[in-house]
């Protein structure tokens, strides 16, 4: 079932991209906008290859991914710790949950100002902004996932002798895993957005910095090439890691067997 929709998905995606490129090329051909404001697909592609050839893009991606990895891992560590503290303490759960929901819709780019004042124009500041973007969705995922675990699972496991760490790692955590993985996925995309935003303002290497660099040179082809790279990196992790993980859990649990299309 899922195999069939997989094979359909690739031609769908190809067709979609072909149409998109076609419209783009067409708008360019009609010369509605001057070339420096609206480059053609071919110009963007050559910019993309040029920035790969001179290594600019690889360095940008590597720098951004390093920051992202550090920020994301910190978010998981602190997010899980806060989430578990909220599970343990009813008071923390009651008070922090609404706060966390609120701060999730808060634009994390706003943390750039305090971050610069606290840490200066450096990696620490950018990692801080990244963490603030992802932290609360992981916190809430952990908390809600464990809190909503059916008490019957816990009763059954306790009845069979499971206590403490065994109960937590072999029952509560796997029972919460669909919710936790879905929030890890959200957290990852929040972290990615926050980081690119922070890099655009604080500008010391990275893909966000490269975007601003392209703007300063008035090189819109480069800007689009970097945007494509940002999109691609996001997709690679989202599709190859998180979607696969979620599908695996869904299939095991019988939640849904159909992956969502493009």
């Amino acid at each position: 079932m899922s195999g069939k929709s997989r094979t359909n998905e690739i031609p769908d995606a190809v067709l979609f991209l072909a149409v998109l490129l076609g419209i783009w090329e067409l708008v360019y051909r009609f010369a509605i906008y001057p070339t420096y404001l609206f480059p053609s697909p071919a110009m963007v592609a050559s910019s993309l290859f040029a920035s790969i050839n001179n290594g600019l893009l690889q360095i940008g991606i590597l720098t951004s991914l390093t920051r992202l990895a550090i920020g994301y891992i910190l978010s998981i560590v602190f997010g899980a710790a806060i989430g578990l503290a909220m599970v343990k303490s009813a008071y923390l759960g009651r008070t922090l949950r609404p706060f966390g929901v609120g701060i999730q819709s808060f634009p994390s780019i706003a943390w750039v100002s305090p971050a610069i004042l606290w840490f200066g124009f450096n990696d620490y500041a950018m990692i801080f902004v990244t963490v603030m973007g992802a932290l609360f969705s992981i916190t809430l995922g952990t908390y809600d996932g464990i809190r909503n675990t059916s008490p019957t699972y816990i009763n059954a496991a306790r009845n069979m002798g499971a206590r403490g760490a065994r109960l937590f790692f072999f029952v509560m955590l796997p029972a919460a895993s669909p919710k936790i993985v879905s929030e890890l996925r959200h957290g990852w995309s929040f972290a990615w957005r926050s980081l690119i935003g922070a890099e655009m303002i604080m500008a010391t290497l990275g893909l966000g910095h490269l975007l601003m660099y392209g703007r300063e040179l008035n090189d819109l082809s480069l800007v689009f090439a970097v945007m494509i790279a940002i999109f691609a990196v996001g997709q690679v992790f989202d599709r190859l890691l998180f979607e696969k993980l979620q599908n695996k859990i869904s299939q095991r649990w019988g939640l849904s067997t159909e992956p969502i299309g493009l």
Partner: peptide
């Protein structure tokens, strides 16, 4: 004293 629950309470994972 082992319980067999009404809905089975089997672990889906």
């Amino acid at each position: 004293r082992l319980m067999v629950f009404q809905e089975g309470a089997l672990f889906p994972w």
